[in-house]
Write a protein that binds this DNA or RNA. Structure first.
Lengths: 216, 216
DNA sequence: AAAAATATGTTGTTTTTACAACAAACGGAG
DNA sequence: CTCCGTTTGTTGTAAAAACAACATATTTTT
């Protein structure tokens, strides 16, 4: 039993022996990669999720002309490819080792066979994945509703408004610095700073660092 | 048993009698609304998903200043609020009857209790929801990767490239007309048409209506 | 506390987009 | 076929964003 696995929220509060059996049931074996090696390429059929025992991987999106864009960086102790593994679809991204890396592959879709759902702990696991996907859906839907706004000001208002509603107050903090907020909203940092200034001047809001107040 | 319910993909290929029991287990009762009435407001705690027996509802996002934006229109025979119901969270949107409407409310989170997962058909239902959320995750992630591109040209290239990869060919059709594509990519239709022309002139691609060909 | 590194704000210039208005192409319905 | 509605493409103008370069402020390191 690898203690790094038990740290994953998905595997928490499951008795040691049950977890042991689950991992045997899902396990597809370990594999190691040297920095720069590809774990999988766009288009590969995905049967397993990867749990990062050590190292780091980069998720890349490669377009028709071969242009590559970094989509995510997965650090040690995290899962990747769980969505594709559950759906058993072809990858729409590539995964490359950003350092020497060891991965434990898991046949995650096995948690969804009729028999395994009868196992109480596998059922708990399935439930956790369902809730996790539902949660991510809300996150993604929220983000889309912000970045589909036309102007930088509208994007900011949409985002800040949702943060105010979430906190239940017109005064709240955000979990981003300016650069992160600009990346999240898909706008340019300095242009966003300028827009925030104008919004302050227009009496819409006030802020200091990542602390904001909206005015009605 | 309402035949409109059995048309939902989630409820297909489940024996009549099992479905009957499931609906009793999940059911929270029917409710009717007149056109214009609110079914729920932003911030309300959500315990049930709504199945639209008749009529139509609008999903609205209302910001801090009261500005309203139409997020989705749910027609008869479809579900809404299933994500919030499963997570038992407070609504981040409001729902308004766009016509006289009757809704069957369902305690969807009950499919996730340890006992109900032991019921084979409820387990199937849970599995279908999990796969459905996973699928939507991929859809939303793809959309975000297109929309976050800086320029209209990059958005188009990102989207068209992914369509080419999905079809496995440089020649493919898209499921949108120009206005729908512009809405999807969050750009202005006529500006997008102009950009497509320029891309054709630059030898990147060719198109006719919704049929495209990319050049390497 | 000083120095260095990082984060944020400001301004002017260039590029891109939105907008409006219209022309051309296309697709039924009569 | 012709008329009419819809879709798509084109162009000029105004608005907005990206970009670059730098000033100021804040945080971290030594």
């Amino acid at each position: 039993m690898d203690s790094r696995l038990t740290k994953l929220p998905f595997f928490q509060n499951i008795p040691e022996d049950a977890l042991e059996k689950i991992l045997v049931f899902l396990s597809a074996g370990e594999k190691s990669y040297r920095k720069g090696e590809y774990l999988l390429h766009t288009g590969d059929p995905i049967e397993t999720a990867g749990f990062l025992l050590s190292g780091e991987v980069h998720i890349l999106r490669e377009d028709f002309w071969g242009n590559r864009a970094l989509v995510a960086q997965i650090p040690e102790g995290f899962l990747f490819g769980e969505t594709y593994a559950l759906l058993q679809k072809n990858a729409e991204v590539s995964v490359q080792a950003a350092a020497d890396t060891t991965v434990l592959y898991l046949h995650l879709h096995r948690i969804l066979t009729p028999e395994s759902l009868q196992d109480p702990y596998l059922a708990i696991l399935a439930k956790r994945f369902l809730l996790s996907f539902a949660e991510r859906n809300l996150t993604l839907t929220g983000k889309i509703s912000h970045i589909t706004c036309r102007t930088t000001r509208e994007k900011l208002l949409s985002y800040l408004s949702s943060q105010a509603q979430k906190s239940g107050s017109a005064v709240f903090s955000i979990p981003f610095n300016r650069q992160q907020l600009a990346d999240y909203l898909a706008v340019e940092r300095s242009a966003m700073s300028a827009e925030l200034s104008r919004m302050k001047k227009d009496g819409l809001l006030d802020y200091h660092k990542n602390h904001f107040r909206l005015f009605t």
